[in-house]
Amino acid sequence: MHIIEFIFSPLLALLIGVFFLGLARKVMARIQWRYGPPVMQPLIDIIRLLSQKSASHGVAFNIGLVMSLAGSLVITLFLPFGKIAPMSNSGGMLVILYLMLIGPLGMAISSGESANPNASIGISRKLLLAMGYELPFLLVVLALMKAYNTTSITEIVSLQRDTGWSMFTFPLVLSGIAYLLILPAMLGVRPFEVVNAPQEISSGPLVEYGGPYLALATLQHALALFIGISLFVNLMWGGAANPVIFFLKMLVVFFLGIFVNAVFPRLRIDQAIRYLWRWPSLIAFAGLILVCVTGS
């Protein structure tokens, strides 16, 4: 039973992530009055990419990408999906926060090795954007941990079962609003799609990836999408005891992100940081103070 969960939860995460990528393209097309590709399109792309002979720029080019995807896969073992969380007793929120570093870092090493300035600009933007949303995000996470007096994500989820969704309980309302405001940045959708801007910097870090590498990068992107949404649902919308309900909640959050993505143009990176460090940070900070004051 336990071993099945270990294999099952990363595969489920990959499947849902790839499904979300396909759904995103379809929904975006419908919003733009197009017919859109089939929902299976990312899977078709991945099969095609795996069969292409790509150029490799060196050992770190391969290993960085492998490291990045492996790190993201490990996070899915810690995140509860419904009740499935096989490794949740080996570490809590802090471990997840630090595991979330491996993905971007591996990608950064890999695309840095590709020796293309477009990739370097993309990575620089990616790290800056992460710096931007980490400031409010850490305040939100600390407020949550302080309010529930635990660092374990499974406990945060199970406590919400008694008190209701933390987004709508009293001291955490402000944190919830701040989290909602930074969610597009964490998912990397417009208006914060500065990293992979294809028109400006030739898709940034992905510029030299082709064939199997691009397939891995697509999977990594899918997993990042899954992790971002799943984290939000677990922390703010009370998780779920049932995987199906959990998936439905994720779907709602995903559609919110897509609708924002569809109507906004792209911000510049400094505009993005300025936005993230102003209102979301202030609200998140007020939320943390509120929790500290009202808490025991």
């Binding site: 790509s54 490799s56 720029h57 020796a115 199997p212 590498y213 891995l216």
Partner: peptide, 12 residues
Amino acid sequence: LRIGARTIPVKQ
């Protein structure tokens, strides 16, 4: 990654 096609090392 090994399932995928062979990759060709290139210069900078």
